[in-house]
Design a binder for these strands. Structure first.
Length: 556
RNA sequence: GCGGCUAUAGUUCAGUGGCAGAACGCCGCUCUGUGGCAGCGGAUGUCGUGGGUUCGACCCCCACUAGCCGCCCCA
């Protein structure tokens, strides 16, 4: 951008142009990071495929209503932690006028003001007078005037003198300008073309919406779906917590006849997650497991909890006192030291499970035992989203996350599809916090003194003079075509510099001077050994492939 | 949303109410087809932004912004 054409008037102190930065809670992943991310994602994709999962990609924004109904209106996520905006047209006076003009009737009077707004109008609509005031407030005087003008035009005022006013004041209310008149303000109607949209704070609701919308249940088959993508929550950034964060998740959902409700599915998901973490090299993970029962069980338990909390409430911290009233289940989540004993003494959900829920949970545990998957029953694991039923779980780790030690979480959501207006479709799913997974891998690698740095290139081609540049690029093309990872230097570089660069980037340096180009025999030096050999061009690719070391694992 | 800590060179960080610093990195030279070591030389900053106190502020005070950590909550 040139900026000198119209220089701003000189001020004694030219204010510095603020540097543009990634917005709060978002970040860039640079090439030294992305290989690890890709490794994680590729590992997950390959593993999910072995379990019969297919990828689903849903939009990163949905209607706000989807999350309100799915995740739960009263959850913190929906009530205060989403990126939500109004997608409607801007509400202004010109738009109001346009809307009324298009929608019905004729406009009997419209006095346009110099500023482009309109004073007042009246028209018939559905048997009543409707008066539209775009400008200023309605008073009795205005209304009388309008009624007068209607009579002059030969209209009789309707018997029922209810006047609907398009108001730019959002609070709908009524006024009584006179004994025979009621003025009703209608604001909401003019927003009807707008829609509240939200960047997805999680993906399960969107996936289930897609399941319903595309009638995947009608196939009769179990749907096994996975996704990898960004999510958005408007929270205060912290370690492992970003406003745009990434989740790797999967859902198993289907009609009851497909076996979607089987405890085997719960156990399979958990076993798959254990395999994934192990395959990624995550050590010391811990599976916390609980059953929050069916929705009926939960109602009974909630009641019991409220009752048990009532007498001891005053002994709890203020936060827990509040939760005791609003959402007793969340008291169980509390980390408040002083309250722990009291909380541990509260009734356990396990004692309130109906026979079906109990049997379901027992079968999950039996399948996990058969697979040799270790788990810890945690009667206080209730989780934050409204839609969870029966099995809920969390995998935690001890390395790298500080207090944000939950690596992934999930559970069963047997009623979610119905909540979204869909068919009965029990399901279970999970979401891995990919940012946290990466942090854990990096912290582990650091503890082990191993590197998560991307592997080096196979070769760096150093032309010794600008005259060899074309030959260098031609050779690079040849080697790259053969599948080697190659960088090309520049003949303008001094040899010392070429060596320096080459050593940081690649395992081999290929020297290309006049001799090498003339004879088609390259000089190749291996940094690890210091060994230098002459290799004919025709055998170069093969030779470099042969001495390529194993690609290092990211995490050992 | 609340609380604590932090913000100085590309990076990691010292620093003092009175000339802006180190290490690493970067560039050059010693050394024109053989680097990593060593020596010598060099560049780089509106000291986060805005205001205030002061003869004088990177330093003290206030506000803002951002980051980190914790709370809330969550993956």
């Amino acid at each position: 951008m040139t900026e000198s054409k119209n220089p701003a008037p000189k001020s004694p102190k030219t204010p510095a142009r603020p540097t543009l930065k990634a917005v709060r809670g978002t970040r860039d992943l640079l090439p030294d990071q992305t290989p690890l991310w890709n490794h994680v994602e590729a590992t997950a994709r390959a593993l999910f495929a072995r379990y019969g999962f297919g990828e689903i990609r849903t939009p990163i924004f949905e209607t706000t209503e989807l999350f309100a109904r799915g995740v739960g209106e009263e959850t913190d996520i929906v009530s205060k932690e989403m990126f939500t905006w109004d997608d409607g047209e801007r509400f202004d006076k010109a738009m109001l006028y346009d809307w009324w003009t298009r929608s019905s009737g004729r406009i009997s009077s419209a006095k346009q003001q110099s500023d482009g707004t309109f004073d007042a109008e009246v028209r018939y609509r559905s048997g009543t007078y409707e008066l539209v005031a775009f400008h200023g407030r309605l008073d009795v005087e205005t209304i009388r005037k309008v009624q007068e003008s209607q009579r002059h035009l030969g209209h009789n005022p309707p018997a029922k003198k209810r006047i609907v006013v398009a108001s730019s004041v959002p609070n709908k209310q009524e006024e009584h300008p006179g004994p025979d008149l009621v003025v009703e303000y209608a604001f909401g109607e003019f927003n009807r073309s707008s829609q509240s949209l939200t960047l997805r704070p999680e993906s399960t609701a969107g996936v289930v919406r897609a399941y319903i919308e595309h009638q995947l249940g009608n196939t009769g088959n179990l749907q096994k779906l996975y996704y990898i993508g960004p999510q958005f929550r408007r929270e205060r950034p912290q370690r492992g917590r970003y406003r745009q964060f990434w989740q790797i998740g999967a859902e198993v959902i289907g009609p009851q006849s497909s076996g979607a409700e089987s405890p085997l599915r719960d156990a399979e998901i958990l076993e798959m997650l254990a395999s994934l973490l192990t395959e990624l090299g995550i050590r010391d993970w811990r599976l916390e497991l609980n059953s929050v029962g069916s929705s009926e069980d939960r109602v009974r338990y909630n009641a019991a909890l409220r009752q048990a909390l009532q007498p001891i409430k005053h002994q709890l911290c203020p936060d827990n006192q509040r939760r005791a009233d609003t959402n007793p289940l969340r008291v169980l989540d509390s980390k408040d030291e002083a309250d722990q004993d009291l909380i541990n003494a509260l009734p356990k959900i396990a004692d309130y499970l109906g026979p079906e829920s109990k049997a379901h949970f027992d079968q999950v545990l039996a399948a996990l035992d058969a697979c040799g998957i270790p788990y810890h029953l945690n009667p206080r694991l209730v989780r934050g989203l409204d839609y969870y039923t029966r099995t809920t779980f969390e995998f935690t780790v001890t390395t790298g996350l500080g207090t944000q030690n939950a690596l992934l979480g999930g559970g069963r959501y047997d009623g979610l599809s119905e909540m979204l207006g869909g068919p009965r479709a029990p399901g279970i799913g999970f979401a891995i916090g990919e940012d946290r997974l990466i942090l854990t891998l990096q912290a582990q690698a650091e503890a082990d003194n191993t590197s998560t740095a991307p592997p080096k290139l196979d070769a760096y081609i150093a032309p010794l003079a600008p005259a060899q540049n074309p030959a260098a690029l031609a050779l690079a093309r040849e080697l790259r075509t053969a599948g080697l990872k190659v960088e090309v230097g520049d003949g303008a570089f001094k040899l010392r510099k070429s060596f320096d660069i080459a050593d940081t980037l690649a395992r081999h340096i290929i020297l290309l001077g006049e001799d090498e180009v003339a004879t088609n025999i390259a000089t190749v030096k291996t940094f690890a050994t210091g060994e230098q050999v002459k290799i004919p061009r025709a055998k170069l690719a093969e030779a470099l492939t042969g001495i390529r070391s194993q690609p290092p694992n990211f995490v050992q």
